[in-house]
Each structure stands twice: as structure tokens, then as C-alpha cells.
Design a binder for these strands. Structure first.
Lengths: 367, 367
DNA sequence: ATACTGTGTGCAAACGATTGCGCATATCGG
DNA sequence: CCGATATGCGCAATCGTTTGCACACAGTAT
């Protein structure tokens, strides 16, 4: 077996910074006095304290957090692991985490797995070697393996947006993908659609599966049979917008009048394809997304979507972490989403036509 | 003076992990033997080595990187400081940095300043306390103060997208905002526009100023006087898309037929406002953005913009850092952008009308 | 004078690993 | 059989801090 150290590399030594020894020498005191003076220990004379603090500033002393972490057996650091920083979903979640972390005196460092399970393992390993006090993971690719990998781990791990914890040892905070997807499709059904499509992705297998399940359950509840031709999950690309774009044609040939997209990025790609093809949204096709990323309010037309409380997800995750670090055993949490109805969903065209035909006397609403 | 430690907090001790001492005890050897066995030192007997490595695995030994960093005087870590992780510009840059960092055996940790100069200082301080081997900063808010703050710092700092280094001690890799902005506006001029607007932002003062300067220079080169009414820099919000949205009206009253936007987010907001107001793009208004974020190819219509080579920016920055860590003195770099012409720019309507009027015999191109 | 109580400071151990050096023991050539 | 070389492992110092304890000295009460 080869022990994997992960954070090693051959190279030459760096210039060494000024330490409390250097200060002690110049001040003619012992290092311990310097240490105490710098943190305002009461038993240090006011005179000495002042002299040392001034010296420290003059000499550009920067306390060495790694030495401190070694002795304290903690790093006041929490690591975040994202699939990619480029996902517009992540931004507010990280802000939520940082918001409470800073308050509590922790620093957060984010790393990415680049959507690669191997790298996710490597990153988790690295964070443990660096002795972060806790880890928050979003959109994991190997959650199922966590019990095996981290069962005996002392580093607490919180997972955001994972639905079914395979083990009690894991903690999570999530929105309920199945339920929120259900409500999105339900909205389409209420508008009168019955030919509703789903566009899914392959690089988020778990949540894709759950949102698809919510879609199915909603249709079944409305006694509409599932038509496989209406479920599109392109395999040839990881790019969500591209996925939306290339899914339009198959959806059209399957006769869809409305589409529930895995997320807003997919919806944006679909929107773009509609425009290029001369299809009017929502008149010719209703579209609903998921996430409510910032840009969703500024698409043309503005996107109807399911909002995930992203900031809150981050906040709650960090709060759970703090609780664990405090020796408590927090409950897992499901936070509710919210249907944000903007302008990409409407009654199906056939339905509108029917209504017009049945009420010929009432003046047509041009809006 | 109060010495600021920054990475401290009161709290109780964490469970201590297994160390090489624990392994040594169980294996009846000395800690040094364990250390050498784990890193496959040749002078350790094959028998002993194997026994120790198996024990280490059994006992879930995770090497302590902080102890290692202490003795090695390096952390194999580089810190990245972003204004916010939510900016779609950042994603590929971080990927570029990570790509070469991983190759070189470094881990990268990203932190955010939340667009707050105070926090940016705090983050830089924290990174130095943690003894990262280098720092890469994007969209700094206090670059001008860096010489004062970091002049005597031993931690190398690379700044991405800062134009004028106030000191030789700083390193940077950038695209030339002035030149790229010039070319964007030039494109508009070549199409026949003369009433060209600019929409700027306040939370990126330096680059905003430079892009505005490029705009000015392009107009001057075309002998078109600068009209202040065409330069909109809303102060009431930090949200770039919102800025684009609220800038449409003043631009219209100023008689603009084309707009150069600070970045793609602004352009997207403007696009949205046009749609709501019933304005056709590019027929009624030409729009050009900056950055070429992923979504720019999927707006309605697809956005003409100036591409920044984001991945490359990150790559080059990390390569410069490696060079410095290797004792070299790298040159600063300016990497070229690229005008990406999509479908939000066209000849001005008046111009089109004139052409049609002058060539009445040729059939009108309906496209 | 003695015994106390504060003050102000230093000693030395610890945190978990790495590493130069030295000490055994085994092996080998002559 | 002796010196030389190779092999296998341990001792102890080191990295930069923190911190329990002891010590020295001053002032005060007895």
C-alpha cells in the first residue's frame, strides 16, 4: 500500500517570517511574555505590553496560524466542496454559509470537485488532512459512498440538497426535490396542459431522478399516463444550457405544450432555442425552471421557476455545523421552496382557442 | 494597540485524531520509523514497512498537514480572493487556476470579500496568518493600497485584471480594458452608429473607468463629441442586471441607437428592459456586452460581446505564482480579448431605412 | 521580623510530524 | 579473522505557539 499524502510536493524552502522569538530577543524578554503581551494577558505589565506590541507592529509580525492550529487541535476553518464554482446556484449558498461562519469566528474555504467523483474524494481527503473543523458539501457525486468513506471520520460533514441519507451518521439540509417538482408540474396541469415534457441532466443523477419522480407523481395524480417520448435526458453534453437547446425538437415532435426543466440553465437554453425557431413563449410552449437563479427574472420573457432558498440553505448548513461542533446533535432539515410565477407559463394555445371559440361575444383580451 | 489575530475563537477542544505515535506504540517501533515507513523510505525493512502501512490503514490514520506545514514552512496551498463567487465571470478563471495548481501539487482555497474593502483586508490578513504559499486576487477593491499593506510581505500576490500596477512589487495578468472597450465601440461605429451610449457600474470602479475611457477614445477617434447624457452610471444599486434594466429609459431619451455595456450582466438587464418595452434588438437598439460569460450565447437574441479569455487568465496567474515560488521574476502579462459578434448588433434603423430608400428596386431582404 | 498576597516574568512541556546523525547487527571481500 | 560496507532502526532537535507552574520581588498586615 502506498500511503497517499495528497498535499505534498518537492520544492525548496520559503523565507521564514518573523516569530515571537525574534520579538522576544529584541525586547529582552522571553517568548512566553511576548505571546501573553500580544493577546493582552492581564499579568503582563502595561509598560512591557506596550513596548512589545509596538515592536511587533514595527517588525511586521504576522502570527502563525498553523502553529496555533497545531497546539489548539483546531483550525477555525470550514471547507466547502462544490461541483463547480461556475454554477450560478452556488453563489448565494456560499454567502449564506459565510455569513454565519464569519459571525462565529470561522473562515470558509471553498474547493471544487470539477464534477469528478475522483476529485471529490481527493478534496475531502485533503480537507481532513488539513484538519478543517467541518465540511459542507453541495451536489455530491458520491454521497452513497460517504458512510463507507467517512463513517469513522471525526470531521463533521453536512450535505446540502441530498435527499435520502444512507446513514444516520450524516447530516443534511435540503429542499424536497420530489415535492417541489410535483408542485411545478401541478402548476402546468392547472393551466390546462396535458402534454408536459421533462428535460433532465446526467451529471446530477440524484436530484435529476427526484425531480423526474415528482414530475411522474404529479401526472399520475392527474391520471395522465407517462409518455416516455416527453422525457428527454440528453447524454452527449454536460452543458445545461446546451441540453435545453437540443431538447426542443424532440419535445415538439412528441407534441409537448409545456416543459418542466431540470433547472433554470436548461430552461434558458430551451428559451433560446424557441426564439431561434420562431416559437412564442408562453403562447406556443410553456416553460418552467428550477432554482430561481438571479438571471431568471431577466430572461426574455422572465422565467417561471421554483425558487430554492439558497442563502438559507447555506445558513442552516453552517448553523448545523456549529451545533455539532458544540457537541449537540442537530436535526436534519427540509426547507420549503416557492413557486415563482413569471411569464413563461400560460394556458395552452389549444385551450385559449377553445375559450375564444366558446365565448365569441366577449371582447378578446389583447393582453 | 490591539494585536488582531483574526483566526481565533473561544471554544472547547476537538477529539484528537490518531498520530504516528499511536501507530508506533502499536507496532513497537519509534515514531521516526513510522514516518519513514509511510513515505516509503528505502532504509526501512520491507517487513516493517508493510506492517506499519497496514496498521495505519486499520487505524484510519490521516496525516496531519498542519504539523507538516509547520516544519516544512510551507502549506502547498494558494488562496484566491474574489469579490463574490456569484459573478459568472469567476468560474472559468478559478478553473484555470486550479488546473495548473493541481498539476503542481498545490491546493487552492477560494475566499470572498463580498465586495467589501474591509473584508478584503481581513481575508488577505487571514491568508497570510495561515501561511498560504501565494495569493491570487480578482477584482480587488484596494489594489491601490496594496503597496502600503503588502510591501514587506513575503507572500507573493498576483492580481488578475488590474491595469496599472502602483508598484513594481506587484504582479498581474490582465486584459486591456481600454483597448477592448475601444474595439467594442469601434464595432458599433463601423456599423454606422453615432449615438452610442455607455452603461457603467459603481462597484468595480477601476475597470469601469477604463472601459469608459476606451469608449471615449473610440468616439474621439471618430470625431464624435462625447455626450454626457449618453453615459449612464446608476448609483442606487449594485445589481448589474438591474442597472442595465433601469438604464434603458435615460438612454432612449438621450437618443441612443446603440449601447456598450460594462459587462454581460448589464447587457442582459438591458435586453430584458427592451423586451418589456417592446423594443426590438438589434433593430431599434444595438447592444454589446463584455466578458462573454457562458450565458451570453443563449440570450434572446444571442449577445454580441467582448470575450475575456477567462480560463487563460487563471492559468497564467497560477503559472506566474509558480515561477515566483521557484525564485524567478516573471513578466506581467496582458492577454488579448476577442470581439464575439452575435445578434444584438446591427446597422442603425435610420441607416437601414436610408439604404432601402436609396435602392428601391432591389427586393427587400426579409430576413 | 514573619507570613501573605499580588505582580510581573521565565521555564519547559506540549502539539504532530520530519530528518540528520549515530548505533547496532549482518554481510562480504580479502 | 578483520575491516569495510550495507541494512535497519532509534534519539533528539526542530518548526512557532500556548500555557501550567514556579520564581522573584514588592508591598502590606500581623
Amino acid at each position: 500500500m502506498e500511503q497517499d499524502h495528497g498535499v505534498q510536493s518537492r520544492s525548496h524552502s520559503r523565507p521564514t517570517a518573523v516569530s515571537i522569538y525574534d520579538i522576544a530577543r529584541r525586547a529582552n524578554v522571553s517568548p512566553s511574555t511576548v505571546s501573553r503581551a500580544l493577546e493582552n494577558h492581564p499579568r503582563i505589565g502595561a509598560e512591557t505590553r506596550k513596548r512589545i506590541q509596538e515592536l511587533a507592529r514595527e517588525m511586521d509580525y504576522v502570527p502563525n496560524a498553523v502553529a496555533r492550529s497545531l497546539i489548539a487541535n483546531r483550525t477555525w476553518t470550514i471547507g466547502m466542496v462544490l461541483a463547480t464554482i461556475a454554477d450560478p446556484f452556488m453563489g448565494r449558498v456560499v454567502e449564506g454559509v459565510e455569513h454565519v461562519a464569519i459571525e462565529a469566528g470561522f473562515n470558509v474555504f471553498v474547493s471544487t470537485s470539477q464534477n469528478d467523483p475522483q476529485r471529490e474524494i481527493a478534496v475531502m481527503k485533503m480537507l481532513k488532512q488539513r484538519r478543517v473543523d467541518g465540511i459542507i458539501v453541495i451536489a455530491s457525486h458520491l454521497f452513497d459512498q460517504y458512510p463507507r468513506l467517512f463513517y469513522r471520520s471525526k470531521t463533521p460533514v453536512i450535505v446540502i440538497n441530498e435527499q435520502k441519507p444512507p446513514s444516520d451518521a450524516m447530516h443534511f439540509v435540503s429542499v424536497d426535490d420530489i415535492r417541489e417538482a410535483y408542485r411545478a408540474v401541478e402548476h402546468l396541469l392547472k393551466l390546462g396542459h396535458s402534454r408536459i415534457g421533462y428535460i433532465g441532466v446526467t451529471n446530477r443523477p440524484k436530484s435529476n431522478q427526484h425531480r423526474l419522480q415528482g414530475y411522474r407523481e404529479a401526472l399520475q395524480a392527474a391520471s395522465i399516463p407517462i409518455d416516455p417520448a416527453l422525457i428527454i435526458v440528453p447524454e452527449e453534453t454536460q452543458d445545461h444550457m446546451r441540453i435545453g437547446e437540443i431538447s426542443l425538437e424532440p419535445l415538439l415532435t412528441a407534441g409537448a405544450t409545456a416543459v418542466f426543466c431540470y433547472n433554470d440553465a436548461v430552461a434558458i437554453g430551451l428559451l433560446s432555442a424557441c426564439s431561434k425557431r420562431g416559437l412564442a413563449v408562453p403562447e406556443d410552449l410553456s416553460i418552467i425552471g428550477f432554482d430561481d437563479i438571479d438571471i431568471a427574472a431577466y430572461t426574455v420573457p422572465p422565467l417561471t421557476t421554483v425558487r430554492q432558498p439558497r442563502f438559507q440553505l447555506g445558513q442552516r448548513a453552517m448553523l448545523m455545523l456549529l451545533a455539532i461542533l458544540d457537541g449537540q446533535e442537530p436535526e436534519n432539515e427540509i426547507v420549503p421552496g416557492e413557486l415563482v410565477i413569471r411569464q413563461t407559463t400560460a394556458r395552452p394555445a389549444s385551450d385559449q382557442a377553445r375559450r375564444q371559440a366558446h365565448i365569441p361575444l366577449r371582447p378578446v383580451d389583447v393582453r
